[in-house]
Simulated scan of single mutants.
Amino acid sequence: MKENHRKVLIKIQEADSILIGASNGLSISEGIHIFADDTSFQENFGDFREKYGFRSIIQGCFFPYPSVEKKWAFFSRMYEYFLINREASPVMKNLYELVKDKNYFVVTSNIDAHFTQAGFQKERLFEIEGNCRNLQCSHGCHNRIYPGDDVLRKMAQNQENGKVPSDLIPKCSECGGQMQVHIEVDRNFLRDQNWQASFEAYQDFIEKAHGKKLVLLELGVGARNQMIKAPFMNVTNHEENATYITFNKGGELYIPDAIAAKSIGIDGNIAEVLQQLVQMK
């Protein structure tokens, strides 16, 4: 195992470019599991669980709340859980420490905004499904995303009986209609200019890495998350000097035969692996 860790570290240190792909497994290694009815969910969202019957944060994101006051109670609570009074985790700090001096880019389906919190540059980040701290018009009446930190924080701190005060609920400045958190929970999810620019920056990063030593570092991406996994495997297959490195747990670790010779799989706890790599650095 240690030999594999050493190989990973050498590949990262020698790389001209590092493309990071991250999904739920990385969040889970931080102690945040949006799909689980775990102790953390019950402690932080127990009142919603009891009232509405949903059993995870992700179910809460898709739940049809009986009123906007109750809907915003959940989404501002989620924002609070992800970000308020929560410093960047050791997991994210270690990941940043590993790549901060390299030419890196991050593509992630995580919505917790933890990459920017840990110091990763916004210009080097593509959050495919948005994040919990931004807002958009729920009707998509105009193509713009707004920072929501202030209003989300206020709503999180002024909840009573599972509701937020009506006067704190954000309204669209253009149509006067409802706003929603900019995460992909329905067909109204906006792919605005910033989203498009991030997507283009991701494509551009891959193009510029052509022919060079490229490491594709995949962290906790499940087999079903093909929007990250498929492009990573495809690039590895076509780039002569690419190395595919995947960190995952047990049954989620998968490397196809076509790229096996250019791949390293680390089976285990992502938090522990990153800690070990930083200590070896």
Rank of each mutant, 00 (worst) to 15 (best):
K163Y: 01
V151E: 11
K102G: 04
E97S: 11
K102R: 02
Y104D: 09
Y96T: 00
H142S: 09
K100C: 04
L83Y: 05
Q121M: 04
V151R: 05
Q117D: 05
P147K: 07
F82M: 14
T108E: 06
F74H: 10
R153G: 03
D101P: 15
F126L: 14
E129D: 05
R133E: 12
I145K: 11
Q121P: 00
F115D: 11
V99N: 07
K100M: 02
N131C: 04
R86W: 07
T108P: 08
N161L: 05
Y81C: 07
M155Y: 14
D149F: 02
A88V: 12
I84A: 06
E80I: 14
Q157A: 12
G162D: 06
F75L: 12
K102Q: 01
K93F: 10
V106D: 04
R153S: 04
Q121N: 06
Q121I: 00
Y81S: 07
S138G: 07
K122G: 05
L135E: 01
A118S: 10
E160A: 15
N158Q: 09
T108R: 07
K93C: 10
L125M: 11
S89N: 14
I84E: 08
N143V: 01
Y79Q: 03
A118V: 05
H139I: 00
L98T: 01
N94F: 00
Y79T: 08
A156W: 13
R144D: 09
Q117K: 06
S109M: 10
S89T: 15
V99Q: 04
V106H: 13
S138D: 12
C132P: 01
R153F: 02
V164P: 14
H139C: 00
R77T: 14
N103I: 04
V164C: 10
E87D: 13
L95E: 05
E129H: 09
N158P: 09
A113I: 07
G140P: 13
R144S: 10
R144E: 10
E160T: 08
S89H: 15
F74E: 12
N85W: 06
V106K: 10
Y146N: 09
E87T: 08
M78Y: 02
F74T: 04
H114W: 08
G130L: 14
G162W: 03
I111T: 00
K122S: 09
C137D: 02
L83T: 14
A156G: 12
A88D: 14
C132W: 04
F82Y: 12
L152I: 00
D101E: 15
K93G: 09
N161P: 13
C141D: 02
I128T: 01
Q117R: 07
I145L: 08
D150V: 00
R77Q: 13
L95Q: 02
A88L: 11
R144T: 03
K100P: 01
D149P: 06
D101F: 12
N143R: 01
D101L: 07
F74L: 01
E123H: 05
F74D: 11
N103Y: 08
E97A: 11
F105G: 02
Q117S: 04
D149G: 03
F126P: 15
N158H: 10
L135K: 03
I84W: 05
F126I: 15
E127V: 01
N103Q: 06
V107G: 11
L83Q: 11
D112L: 15
S89F: 14
L95C: 06
F115W: 11
P90A: 00
S76K: 04
S109H: 06
L83R: 12
I111G: 07
Q159E: 10
D150N: 08
E80G: 13
V91K: 02
